[in-house]
Design a protein around this nucleic acid. Structure first.
Lengths: 235, 235
DNA sequence: CGAAATTTTGAACCGTTTCAACGGACGTGG
DNA sequence: CCACGTCCGTTGAAACGGTTCAAAATTTCG
């Protein structure tokens, strides 16, 4: 009987990027009884870089709680255009979007470990465990707020402002002004609604104005966090 | 004692624009006991065109259930740039975004009536009424999915594709290919991340290609729904 | 009917994209 | 240990889609 085995792994606490608070992960919110049931329907999995967790338009069989690594969540158009709607870090939850099919794809950026639940059994558990439902609602509300912020970015911000927003955000999420980017320029571009060339130029621009320094393409240090954050807001 | 007085007004059922299903409004989901309590903390209000329901960054004192009319939900930048993150119609719910302050502004587009709840008392009720919480979670998930779709639009679609998406969406939401737009070109522009001129030109373009006809700026008839929907997806 | 507001149209401009070439990091095999 | 090839990121130049500014046309409303 797999009682508490997979659970400790998905019980991660981490500071929230946008609001600073330390949200409990979904697993951690289950009550005593719920926790036991949760263990019974959970399994811990490892994913290789670029491996698929969920495929767009496929039946939504599972939900995930990310334990380590970074996951990209994206939507694809028929001609290949891609919009990354979010990056998930340890503690983040995947699978909230409604419907019986995934409205998005999800792939591992680097190596990822995640806690996986069968959707049907999870929902049955949910119905019996109100505190779990509350945790999910809190997270959904949180994600919704983040999505609205991203709409402002995509609809109204310049390339430089977008990158400044992204770096400020990422610094807050990973908890430090020394950022080790897990994602490529292509992924940043598809997240910010730009091309890799524009991302590169914007990065060079920020470096030139002394807001950041680079040591290798993926190692960014935010030198003037306040100025970067101000730029992100258009001031 | 105001028992069932304001409740019938916010018990609206309407077809869902994106998935076609008829979601129950939040009020309609409360159980017997919850419904009574809900009545006690609800009040029906009328809003004049452009009147504020909620102001960005102000304390989030209330939640709303729209009864009639259209509401614009938006985010503002310091220099006045505006991104409308969504339009709400009868039955839609406002106030899900987390935190103790509104992350967005909300204003009546035309005349609006809405059911208003005090946030604190609503949350207390929520804690005691799991079915209500489930309804909210369902709606939050639904909104999240819509937000992701909008991110794809804002990040990757051309002006014409954006307008085609908007018209297809609006036709589905208002239930008919004869659309009477409640919002101005400026509002459509701020929703689609464009300027009024570009919206106007895209509208002219759709008319020229025979996908729509116009009778007055705000009266749109979708002549070829399938072709319009295909265009919205980039095909 | 007349005035104000909104929408459409036109032309020049600009930021981002596109296309192309270069440079550097990394891993493999000689 | 170094040569080579590949992948990723950067840089440059030209092209494009959307914006900006300006003015005409249409609609709305008193």
């Amino acid at each position: 009987m797999l009682d508490a085995a997979p659970l400790p792994d998905c019980d991660t606490l981490r500071p929230c990027g946008s609001c600073g608070a330390r949200h409990l992960s979904v697993c951690a919110r289950a009550d005593e009884a719920g926790l036991k049931e949760l263990a019974a329907i959970a399994e811990t999995l490892d994913f290789a870089p670029d491996q698929t967790l969920a495929a767009q338009d496929e039946p939504a069989a599972h939900l995930f709680n990310i334990t380590s690594g970074v996951v990209r969540v994206f939507k694809l158009m028929a001609d290949g255009r891609r919009q990354i709607v979010g990056f998930l870090f340890a503690g983040d939850f995947l699978g909230l979007a409604s419907g019986d099919r995934y409205a998005f794809g999800a792939e591992a950026v680097g190596a990822v470990t995640a806690c996986r639940f069968r959707r049907g059994r999870y929902q049955a558990l949910l119905a019996r465990s109100p505190s779990l439902e509350g945790a999910l609602l809190e997270r959904a509300s949180h994600d919704l707020r983040a999505a609205q912020e991203q709409m402002l970015l995509l609809g109204r911000k310049s390339a430089t402002e977008r990158l400044a927003s992204f770096l400020t955000d990422t610094a807050a999420r990973t908890g430090g002004d020394d950022i080790d980017l897990a994602m490529s320029r292509a992924e940043i571009a598809d997240y910010l609604g730009l091309t890799i060339e524009t991302v590169s130029r914007a990065m060079t621009g920020l470096k030139a104005s002394g807001l950041i320094t680079l040591s290798g393409a993926r190692r960014v240090r935010v030198e003037r966090p306040d100025a970067l954050a101000a730029l992100a807001c258009g001031d």
